[in-house]
Amino acid sequence: MNGMANPTLERAGLDGWMVRLFDTIEEQNLLWLTALSHECEVAFGAALVDVVPSYTTLLVIFDPLQLTPCDVRIQLVNILARLEPDEAGAEGELHELPTWYDASVGPDLQRVAELSGMTTESVIETHSRQQYRVFALGFSPGFAFMGLLDESLKCPRLATPRAKVPTGSVAIAGRQTAAYPAVTPGGWNLIGRTTARLFDRNREGFSLLKVGDRVRFVGVSRTTFEKQGGDVTPVKDKVAP
């Protein structure tokens, strides 16, 4: 278990503090970030506007009519002094995302295979073998940055992002993986498509995945994918690798 070496507080406007807990990305960071989010909810109650956890930091936004930055800073220092990692959340909720890995919906499968010197089959096997942790949500509602991807699959983003990445696209970039919750532009390498509804405004909590959750991509056949409501429309636009 790593500890927080030396957390720092940085001003983030008149209604925010950036709490910097770590210098490097480690799974263990998530336990501390979750614990700190929770402690902030308890300490600030209705005066807490938002908390944004991400890899190594927690951005805390408060209501500047109810609290001063000085009040919040003092409280945060106190919280940090007695913070314990959220061991109960160590496991994180596990989600299995049914994924159809295929060149028609994952047009960068071949490129990834070439870059990694593997067959597409072993790219799929490597990607689906492992469990990932959600390190941050951002980019678009419910878009979860997951890692760490096996070193052998590490690949750069596309030189030119696609204007429209289809909903459910499963993608990799650097040592991270993600699934696109909605049609957005995107520069990650597409290797498949999931039937999971990643963001649903009618669901309690809205986002399927939360920071600290665990995720496994489970390969399914085209038939199963279609049966579960998957959209088999191929990705058409060709982009420069």
Partner: peptide
């Protein structure tokens, strides 16, 4: 940097 939260007016 490692991505982190961005507040209004950054």
């Amino acid at each position: 940097l490692i991505s982190e939260g961005i507040s209004l007016g950054a």
